[in-house]
Amino acid sequence: MRALVAAVMIALAPAGAALAQDKAELIGDASRGEEAFRQCRGCHQVGPGAENRVGPHLNGIFGRRAGSIEGFDYSDGMDRAHADGMVWTIERLDAYLENPRALVSGTRMSFRGIKDAQERHDVMAYLRRYSASPRDIPESQPTAFRSEVDLPPEILAIVGDREYGEYLASECLTCHKRDGADDGIPSIVNWVEEDFVIAMHAYKRQIRPHPVMQMMAGRLSDEEIAALATYFATID
């Protein structure tokens, strides 16, 4: 286990150093997923006209609350997941496909699971075709894994790259006015850098509640937060 952690850290370090050269990765390959879905077809239908069989139909599975198809007889375990408010996100589907019983005790889905991560992702990409499209329905679930690099705490002392901060700040300035006006949306100019960094990490860890800010901060690396803090602390 220790060796695995070390390997992950080494794999992540250069990506962080290269300032997010990493890119979002699509869930998987839908055409390969269609092939892999054969092992599911015995029980599940998906696509136009799909109906419940041994298992419920899978249209619109992304973002659907677990155990929510009217008239389908779910296991007690799945009913409990429903009562707990579980929603089928990418992460949960991935976990369920890997080992159904690990996510939902007592599920009736008697399936050993797909151990290969790529194969699971391909199946999800295929199923994603039959969920609402984000372009038209933006609240629907993601189509890609975000690129995320978590660095150790000592990197919080990093000196911000102001020029990078200026580019990143262009996204903030859609809502937060550069002249410091704060009608409806707070001012973020000329903050003390440390305050800015702490606030952004609080959003990133979802300690601060605002959903737009959680989303914005959630995909910023520590260097990017530092760069923004430097930029906003030093604009005229």
């Binding site: 984000p134 609240e139 993601p142 959903p211 737009v212």
Partner: peptide
């Protein structure tokens, strides 16, 4: 309603939403 996006080779993909 909102979402964050990043480019892939194929398209601009959503990576989170609310």
């Amino acid at each position: 309603v909102g979402a964050a996006y990043e480019p892939t080779e194929e398209k601009i993909a959503s990576v989170s939403s609310f």
